[in-house]
Every structure is written in C-alpha cells, then in structure tokens.
C-alpha cells in the first residue's frame, strides 16, 4: 500500500486533530514509510467491509432474494382431509397412466364447490372468482421443479411406499396456506433450496424437505446405497 504524506505521523486516535496541521510541515518526510497507526485504520475499514458483507449476506440477502406472495385462496387442507376418504390422493391423485396429477384443477373441485357450501369468505371468493367463470386457480407450487428434472411420484409413492409427508411435511393438516417465498431470480419456491440459506441443519419437524439435487442424492444414497445416475432424473 502506498504511503501518503497526510498519514505519516498520524495515529488512529489523533487523526482528527493532527491531520490538518501535518499537511503543512510534512514536505520533508515525504517518502518515509507509513506509520503503524494507519494499519489500524485499514484494518478497521477492512472489518467494516467484512462484517458488513457478512451481515448483508446472511440477513439482508435472503430478504432481497425472495419476494413474499400469498396463495390466491387461503386453502384449508385440514378441513378437506377430514372430509375425504382417500387421504391426500383424493385430490392429488395418480392418473390411469401412472403420472401424478399434482395440483387439482377445477374439475376436481367443482363436484362439491359448484356453489359455496359455507359462508367462509375464502370459499365464496373461490366460487365467485374461479369456479363460476371457469378459471383455473393459479396456485403457487412450493415443490415445482425445473423442466429439466424428471421426477416420478409414482416411483416414490407406489414403488418405494413413501408417505406424502416424508417430503412435503405436514401441509396436509394445515388450516392456512403458507406464505410463498419466490426466488426473484429463478421463480422457484424457497422450499426447494430450503428455508435455511446456509442449507445447514435439518428442517423443523413438519416442514417440507429441501429439494435440490443434492437432497435427492443424499436420500438416495441413504436408502439405496448410491446417489443414482444423471439420466435417472435428467432425461
């Protein structure tokens, strides 16, 4: 770091008073080495930057990266789960060809909700804004994967006999929809990366599991002994 005539004799403590004078009687000491004290200032500014970026990175960044959205309808899973016979699969069913239907569409809802059954404002909103005009609800999917990922629900649920909860948490018993945190860059849910920005630690009981590729690989390694081949998911 180059020395400066202004700083040569200035200690960090004396900076404010000494500096103006030093300018005037400095010419003779022009090329003397920098004083020790300027190292402290440098360290201080380094630390300001260092700590600042740590704080920004860990606290501010997640706030900036994700926008918060509400589902179009505050859906009550708990009520529905009580009423149906077939658990989650009553609405999130497998089609005849084995593919998974995912979010139910209006056809599935219309049998019961052609007209509002209660005076719940959310149900009334659902009927008025979606059922009656025949518009599909633009649900925000917390588990949506990129197009390059081939995931078979069938292999996991039917083949490996896994429960829905083992990946999706206890969404089935929730009375309200969660806030959907959307990654502003990718458009996917924060759930995919996991709530912890560091991806350290385990999700709280009942929370959905993160769904990045490493998460798939980790589980596959534990359960099957190997991470699996690329083409199994990236067809």
């Amino acid at each position: 770091m180059s020395s400066t005539d202004q700083h040569q004799t200035v200690s960090p403590e004396a900076t404010s008073e000494a500096a103006p004078d030093s300018v005037h009687h400095a010419p003779n000491t022009n090329d003397s080495p920098p004083a020790k004290s300027s190292g402290w200032a440098i360290f201080l500014f380094f630390m300001i930057g260092f700590v600042g970026s740590l704080l920004a990175g860990w606290i501010l960044f997640p706030e900036l990266l994700y926008s918060k959205k509400q589902q179009p309808i505050d859906f009550n899973h708990a009520i529905h789960l009580d009423l149906v016979d077939d658990g989650c699969e009553s609405c999130h069913y497998f089609r005849d060809d084995g593919s998974f239907a995912g979010m139910p569409n209006l056809d599935s809802c219309i049998d019961c909700h052609e007209e509002a059954q209660t005076d719940d404002p959310e149900e009334i909103k659902f009927v008025d804004e979606y059922v009656t005009p025949g518009i599909e609800v633009p649900w925000l999917n917390h588990s949506k994967q990129p197009d390059c990922v081939f995931f078979s629900h069938s292999a996991h649920v039917m083949g490996a006999d896994m429960s829905c909860e083992s990946c999706h948490g206890d969404i089935g018993t929730s009375e309200h929809t969660r806030v959907y945190e959307e990654n502003k860059l990718t458009g996917y849910s924060r759930d995919i990366w996991g709530h912890s920005i560091s991806r350290l630690g385990k999700p709280k009981p009942g929370d959905p599991l993160p769904m990045k590729m490493n998460d798939c690989a980790k589980c596959h390694e534990e359960e099957t002994g190997h991470k699996g081949a690329c083409f199994q998911c990236h067809k």
């Binding site: 770091m1 400066t4 202004q6 700083h7 200032a41 440098i42 500014f45 380094f46 630390m47 300001i48 930057g49 260092f50 700590v51 600042g52 970026s53 740590l54 920004a56 990175g57 860990w58 960044f61 997640p62 990266l65 990366w193 920005i197 560091s198």
Partner: peptide, 25 residues
C-alpha cells in the same frame, strides 16, 4: 485516504462475502 479506505472496505466486503451464501447461491 478515501480511496484507500474504500478499497480496503471493498476488499473486506469481498472477503466477508465469501463466507456468506451470496456468491454460491
């Protein structure tokens, strides 16, 4: 000094950011 401290702060910030999720995420 402004340039120096700014540079130092930026370097500090850069070093710090390596220990945050920002670049990796």
């Amino acid at each position: 000094s402004f340039l120096t401290y700014t540079t130092v702060a930026v370097l500090g910030g850069a070093a710090g950011s390596m220990l945050t999720p920002v670049p990796w995420k």
